[in-house]
């Protein structure tokens, strides 16, 4: 372990283009998000539904006292809600907001896989067509041994407008709490 730690440290040191991603499944496809955006992963559950919201907004959760809105990535990407399973979980991400701060957001995924380290050479630009989802949602693609990994563009997928509406929702809820 000592050795591997040393090796990893060494690798990171000599090639700064290495970047870590959290891979996960949604709608039968494999996606990845930059790990620095991810705050933590929690088990699915404890979601309070909010009426009159778009379908991809599942509701809010109480994360250690803070109200965090939860969006359904599958619904956001394909317009189809996730079927909850054993592996379903919520990834808490920090998305920068307009007020130069960050907003905590819960993303429901079918299952998280692993933390992957990829260098920039392994990445390719997303295709201009032929994808099942909006191409602007994809930042890049990576070819793994057995599959293709799509690295999501968080600023698109979790857009500012949506953030705003979500923030509004959050504020609304917070106001109600007060």
């Amino acid at each position: 372990m000592q050795l591997s730690q040393a090796t990893l440290t060494h690798q990171t040191a000599i090639s700064p283009s290495f970047k870590q991603y959290l891979t996960f499944n949604t709608g039968g496809e494999c996606y990845a998000l930059g790990i620095l955006l991810v705050k933590e992963i929690i088990e699915f559950g404890g979601i309070t539904k909010i009426p009159l919201m778009p379908t991809f907004v599942r509701g809010v959760i109480n994360l250690r006292g803070a109200v965090v809105p939860v969006i359904d990535l599958s619904a956001r990407l394909y317009g189809k809600c996730v079927d909850e399973g054993k592996r379903t979980c919520i990834v808490i991400v920090e998305v920068p907001n307009n007020a130069d701060g960050v907003t905590e957001l819960g993303v429901v995924v079918d299952g998280v896989n692993e933390v992957l380290e990829l260098n920039s050479a392994e990445l390719t630009a997303p295709p201009q067509f032929g994808s099942k989802i909006r191409t602007d949602f994809i930042e890049a693609m990576a070819r793994l041994s057995d599959r293709l990994l799509m690295i999501l563009a968080p600023e698109k997928v979790l857009s500012v407008e949506e953030m705003a509406s979500l923030v509004a929702v959050t504020e609304h809820v917070n106001n109600q709490e007060h």
């Binding site: 730690q5 870590q20 620095l36 933390v115």
Partner: peptide, 18 residues
């Protein structure tokens, strides 16, 4: 996974832990 995330966020210091 959470540990890995923590380690990544910790930057170079979290490498071993990762």
């Amino acid at each position: 996974l959470n540990a890995s995330i923590e380690a990544a966020r910790a930057g170079a210091a979290g490498r071993g832990f990762a």
